[in-house]
Nucleic acid binder design. Structure first.
Lengths: 341, 341
DNA sequence: TTGTACGCGTTATCAG
DNA sequence: CTGATAACGCGTACAA
């Protein structure tokens, strides 16, 4: 690795002090225009670039923030990252991305890693709520702010960026009811997530509002991966407990269910209608196109990053703020009742 | 932000010198076991963590490598990133991720950003080949190694991680020929990418080998996004130049083509068979499931990171190495000739 | 075994 | 207007 030019190199070449060079390059007023010109030329000649590490050491700022997410495979998080990156780059901040693979232990390890890298703040979507919440609180108390998005921790006081899961779940369920589906059920997410609870509650309340019957089998716990949707659907088919319509926790669950439906020789939406959640672009590509809730992923990232930088750069006393962004309900063929019209 | 404990703090608390503290904590032999014990206890008490920035400054290493990719939306790159992260974390290296949005100008800006962050090496998949190749070479010459993956630059001497695009394209085409499709064409990628050339050549050579007729219309240039596949297919249908089978540059192109096929009331594979490339998990979810080439994304990331770290940590004289990983050909319903058998 | 002093690259402060 | 010096946190050669 070739040595990078430093202030000293320029100073030596021009027979002046590093202090003057520094001043000339930061375009200060109190420096002879002629010297300034000379320095700037020499700097360009030597391809001088200020060493960000020296700056960070001096300013006692790592200029780094950390990201902790459950996974990187589905389309959701990469888009969020794009939004975060944009805001951070504008402020000359770096991002350390860590994925927890849906494991609470790995999540803790990731947080430790971020701490030892002296991040000035953390953006995170928790893996399993409650598991590490004491640790989150300790980090915040130590002066490193955390902003949660998507999956948060209700017993930790911190800023959050979310969408109105309850409302969207309510809408989705009502949409199925208005489409005259009778036996409507919900494939629910992992039990320990607040989004799971909110979407479930939205479903239940919509059912109640329209006096739909709710049984023990109205809500079936699945998970986040398509495999879970597949097995859940298959098991229903085997037991011959076939619903008219399913509101699924997310798109992958709906994809899995769809696969099982097709394999059983059934059709969507004729036999079983489906609604997903937090769609990626895929939803419109499959057959039938999947009705789904579209989250403003990029904007979520932007907002979380802004909230965090505000806390870091402007307000030293963390003001907790919850931003609720609006999602979009995209109605497609998978949830339209063809018998009814 | 609460102040982080430093060596000085510990030294002061124990009334000894920072040097001794430093030695005690790095577990050196030449230090009194009793002092060592005391220091380590005090360090734990104050929750001491070595300041990585000070270390980087002292060692003159940024311990950071940069990543430049065309986009972050499709599933391909996030998986590669996972692989890169894993290797880098093991070596205590950080990753700065930049996306170029398929723009050569933004790519140049990203490279500048990485340079000013003093990355020790760069992993990249180029946006448009040739456009910035002089710059790549200049970076390498300045002592910062680059490892390319997926999309590289033929006129830059650097390590690469690729798959055998030619061979896989050849296989895919032969597969269509063996399935007794007659009029087979290729939806080709962006003109200025070497992967485009290789996949096209694989297609052409397989066609030649089996004495299939090649006309001016056998290869149609599309792009990387599904929209392009859609319009290309639609235009063929409008002109009534309908092929039996299409080998598509990538999965999104195939998805787009499929959409146009369905809209025209045609069926896949009955009327038009499709083969994609570099699949994400989606390929198996659509209807019909798409025959496609599966790249070892995670492994690509791992390999690229290893190659780069080797150059940085071990071999100062960059030995150029090209690693070709093997992809998997997944045959599904979209390319099986039902009339034949 | 321990302490002192220096350097990594930069800027701020204080003299000149 | 410019130069010398200290400081950021760490490790280490050298001196004690």
């Amino acid at each position: 690795m070739k040595k990078h030019a430093t202030l000293k190199d320029i100073a030596k070449a021009l027979n002046i002090s590093t202090a003057t060079v520094s001043r000339a390059l930061t375009d200060r007023l109190d420096v002879n225009p002629k010297t300034k010109q000379l320095v700037q030329e020499e700097a360009k000649r030597q391809n001088y670039k200020p060493n960000p590490i020296a700056l960070r050491l001096q300013n006692k700022r790592s200029k780094t923030i950390g990201l902790v997410i459950p996974e990187l495979r589905t389309g959701f998080f990469p888009n969020v990252i794009s939004g975060i990156q944009k805001v951070l780059m504008e402020h000359d901040y770096q991002l350390i991305i860590t994925a927890s693979d849906e494991s609470a232990e790995l999540e803790e390890k990731n947080l430790k890693l971020l701490e030892s890298n002296m991040v000035e703040g953390i953006i995170m979507s928790v893996t399993r709520e409650g598991e590490n919440s004491n640790y989150y609180q300790r980090i915040i108390d130590s002066g490193v702010p955390i902003v949660f998005f998507n999956r948060f921790c209700s017993n930790v006081v911190a800023s959050k960026v979310i969408i109105d899961d309850y409302k969207m779940a309510f809408f989705a369920t009502e949409h199925l009811i208005y489409n005259k589906f009778e036996k409507i059920i919900h494939f629910s997410g992992p039990n320990n997530l607040s989004v799971t609870k909110k979407r479930k509650q939205g479903f239940l309340d919509a059912m109640k509002k329209h006096q739909k019957q709710i049984t023990d089998n109205s809500v079936i716990t699945t998970g986040v991966l398509s495999k879970k949707g597949y097995t859940a659907m298959k098991s229903l088919i085997n037991k011959n407990e076939i619903p008219d319509a399913i509101f699924c926790f997310n798109d992958p669950i709906a994809f899995g269910a769809l696969k099982a439906i097709k394999e059983a020789g059934l059709s969507c939406p004729n036999d079983i209608a489906l609604v997903g959640f937090s769609e990626t672009e895929v939803a419109q590509l499959i057959d039938p196109p999947l009705t789904s809730i579209e989250q403003p992923t990029y904007e979520i990232g932007e907002t979380a990053a802004k909230l965090l930088l505000d806390q870091i750069l402007i307000s030293p006393t963390p003001e907790v703020e919850t931003v609720c962004l609006s999602a979009k309900f995209n109605i497609r063929k998978s949830s339209v009742n063809l018998k009814n019209s």
